[in-house]
Nucleic acid binder design. Structure first.
Length: 86
DNA sequence: CGTATGACGTGCA
DNA sequence: GTGCACGCCATAC
């Protein structure tokens, strides 16, 4: 099974510890290509798997960014996790 | 197979 | 400090 970048991103994001947020660039770097940060958001957007805490992935600006189900939901999850936007 | 997209990031006005 | 535009990559259709 060849792990595509998409699969890599899923694994990395699913490995994000609770209470920790990573920006798309970091996820992309851990996935193998720090220059593919756009793909990270792209993949998560087209693949809303409930097993993936994609809400822990935020922009490097410290902003929530966006969410396929609504930014409000993502903000809610972040607050629920007591995640502090670094 | 080829084209267009996208939950970004950075720079500049 | 805020807003706009460009550029980068992989995925989806």
């Amino acid at each position: 099974m060849k792990k595509s970048f998409k699969n890599r991103v899923f694994e990395v994001v699913s490995k994000i510890p609770k209470g920790r947020t990573l920006n798309y660039k970091e996820v992309a770097r851990l996935a193998g290509n720090e220059f593919a940060y756009r793909v990270v958001g792209n993949i998560l957007n087209r693949n809303k798997d409930p097993k993936i805490p994609c809400h822990r992935v935020i922009r490097s600006d410290g902003k929530i960014g966006g969410f396929n189900r609504g930014v409000g939901e993502k903000a809610k999850l972040l607050q629920k996790e007591k995640i502090v936007l670094f």
